[in-house]
Design a protein around this nucleic acid. Structure first.
Length: 293
DNA sequence: GACTCGTGGAG
DNA sequence: TCTCCAAGAGT
């Protein structure tokens, strides 16, 4: 079973959210910034930060001119702050090596830090209308259900997933049809074909959905390991970085020591933040966001 | 392929 | 409360 592209694209036209990075006047740079911010981070949390970034750094060269510390600070609490550093590095490469223009082909995009299989194709498709399979968690779930009749997608397998979705891309009158189809597939997964409590009554492709036809069988594949957060290194790193985000001046080690009671874990996390370039030590031994002193 | 890497809202 | 999960990437 396949997915009827015209039906899905029509639904997208009437039901899609009005997101600023989908506006016709949004630049490829704006699309790229949105895609990186949206990696594992909900739309609602990205929206205000994206607006601020595009006002402050409207071109890759503008971001490249900022310090790493400014970029990490402006990233705020979007999570996974290494994304901010990678985006800064990518912006520098785009400014220096690509004439300040975001590349439009997948292979070149893949060469930039922080841009992987999903983001490269999302930028090529959504910013430039290129034909490329765009596979995120939404798409994998929709395809698992509508095409394969499974309750959930199994564990991701990049190459298999790409081939899987490639086969579904429509041959429309122009190349951008495939991109619009991909955007619609993602939007369906985000709004209707959700992970929990899918709203099948509102689904535009209900009639052809393989999962419905099979009687909505429960997922039988391997359960995803539940990810804890409290007490993990991720948690501690977040606490330490939050201290530095909250100050302009470098802080003493003793100040960071207040953030987490376990000294061993705390120091290891501080070391990893230093190694990642998210934190810097000043000449007098204090700590700060990088490049701000 | 299995881990690691933040954060906070929803159910 | 606690579990789930949100447009992934890098190692």
């Amino acid at each position: 079973m396949s997915i009827d592209a015209e039906t899905l694209i029509d639904w997208f036209g009437t039901s899609a959210r009005d997101l600023p990075w989908r506006h016709a006047d949004c630049t490829p740079w704006g699309v790229l910034v949105s895609e990186v911010m949206l990696q594992q981070t909900p739309v609602a949390r990205v929206l205000p930060v994206w607006q601020q970034w595009l006002e402050r750094w409207p071109k890759p060269s503008a971001l490249a001119s900022a310090t790493q510390g400014e970029v990490v600070r402006a990233w705020g609490k979007l999570g996974y702050p290494r994304r901010a550093l990678r985006l800064h590095t990518a912006a520098t490469a785009i400014a220096d090596e690509h004439g300040d223009e975001v590349p439009s082909d997948v292979d070149t995009l893949l060469g930039l830090p922080g841009i992987g299989a999903y983001t490269a194709r999302a930028v090529a498709a959504f910013a430039y209308g290129r034909r490329a399979p765009v596979v995120d968690t939404n798409v994998r779930r929709v395809v698992a259900r509508a095409v394969h009749g499974a309750g959930e997608a199994g564990p991701p397998s990049t190459n298999r997933d790409l081939r899987d979705v490639e086969a579904l891309l429509p041959d429309g009158p122009d190349e951008s049809c495939a991109a619009r189809f991909s955007a619609a597939l993602m939007e369906l997964g985000a709004l209707v074909c959700t992970a929990r409590n899918p709203r099948c009554a509102d689904c535009p492709i209900f009639d052809t959905c393989a999962w419905q036809k099979a009687g909505r069988p429960a997922y039988t594949g391997p359960a995803r390991p539940t990810q804890r957060y409290g007490g993990t290194d991720r948690h501690v790193r977040g606490l330490l970085l939050d201290v530095l985000r909250g100050t302009t001046e470098p802080v003493e080690k003793a100040r960071l020591d207040l953030a987490w009671p376990k000294a061993g874990q705390r120091d290891a996390c501080l070391d990893s933040l230093l190694a990642d370039g998210l934190v810097e030590q000043t000449a007098d031994g204090r700590f700060a966001l990088p490049g701000e002193h």
